[in-house]
């Protein structure tokens, strides 16, 4: 295998706030190969969205980002503004969460997709892109409010494909959609990825979604990776207690035992300004010992391509 399409090393993202610096991402390294889907999971506030905003240097001004981001052999961190604009969408496109807010309510969807095409002088046609995501030609001139939630999300996907990117970053593309529509959108993304050989980063807090789309998983907690490995094996036998809790939060249909034994995590994700010492997960961890509160944890390999940051594994 050649170099990965995306290679992130020791990424830190620190926001400025009135309460002082807020470290949202604290040293994350990950990579995505061509044609591969990486599922990025974690609770709200775990740093998933901060991480992907930093990938295209979209973090708000004043945010401190350090580490290295190499996309298709180019260093994103040192890119000149003109090149950066070309790379945005040209090489890596984003399917944002909440298509509602990301589409301009007073412009027709055809015009908004055309906007992406024009920005990068792509040769794609709006109707072709819409056809690929299953939106009929006659809907092209609709306004966003005339479409359903699922259709809007499809429009966002069509827009993401406008410039034939190599990497698709899907930031919780199925939240706020009902389960049936969610399944359709996931199927669409999976098909597109297979047909076009796209690499994809799929962000969600819903591990059950990832089981159908991801090749590999990366689980974030308090701005760090706690476990990363092959998706199927990880969902079946997660090593880190946090991944286990996330996986157990979804009941298995037809399994009465899982309904009667409510699982999940108590407590809230830690305040990024005051992250607990040692393993940041220890205050909520069912198997934590005194040692966990003082000893810092690092990712350690447990199998080929499978790493866990836990003293108890």
């Amino acid at each position: 295998m050649s170099d990965p399409l995306l290679d992130v090393r020791d990424l830190h993202v620190t926001y400025r706030s009135s309460r002082g610096p807020v470290p949202a991402v604290r040293g994350v390294s990950l990579h995505v190969d061509r044609g591969e889907t990486l599922g990025l999971a974690g609770e709200s506030g775990s740093g998933k969205s901060s991480l992907i905003l930093a990938l295209l240097r979209l973090a708000p001004p004043g945010t401190k980002v350090t580490g290295s981001i190499v996309l298709a052999g180019e260093d994103v961190m040192t890119m000149r503004p003109g090149r950066l604009r070309a790379v945005r969408w040209g090489e890596a496109a984003v399917v944002f969460q909440g298509a509602q807010h990301v589409l301009n309510p007073v412009q027709r969807i055809s015009r908004q997709i055309q906007e992406a095409i024009d920005t990068h002088r792509s040769s794609n046609k709006v109707v072709d892109l819409l056809a690929q995501v299953g939106i009929p030609r006659w809907r092209a001139h609709a306004y966003p409010h005339e479409l359903s939630g699922g259709q809007k999300q499809r429009v966002m996907i069509a827009m993401a494909l406008a410039c034939d990117p190599e990497l698709l970053i899907a930031d919780e593309p199925t939240t706020a959609l009902d389960v049936m529509v969610q399944a359709q959108v996931l199927q669409l993304l999976a098909d597109l990825q297979r047909d076009r050989g796209l690499a994809m980063i799929f962000i969600t807090h819903d591990l059950s979604v990832l089981s159908t789309v991801a090749d590999r998983l990366a689980v974030m907690y308090a701005g760090r990776l706690v476990e990363t490995g092959p998706a199927r094996e990880m969902l079946r036998g997660a090593k880190h207690p946090y991944t286990k809790a996330l996986a157990a939060a979804f009941p298995t249909i037809g399994d009465h035992a899982s309904r009667l034994a409510p699982s999940g995590l108590s407590g809230d994700p830690p305040d990024p300004i005051a992250v607990p010492s040692g393993c940041p997960f220890h205050p909520r961890c069912p198997i934590a010992t005194d040692e966990c509160a003082v000893t810092p944890v690092e990712l350690a390999s447990v199998a080929s391509g499978w790493e866990v940051a836990c003293l108890k594994v």
Binding site: L58, A93, E115, T119
Partner: peptide, 12 residues
């Protein structure tokens, strides 16, 4: 607004 963020991500 979200669509301004989208336009930025779009390379506008």
């Amino acid at each position: 607004r979200g669509y301004v963020e989208r336009a930025t991500a779009l390379g506008a």
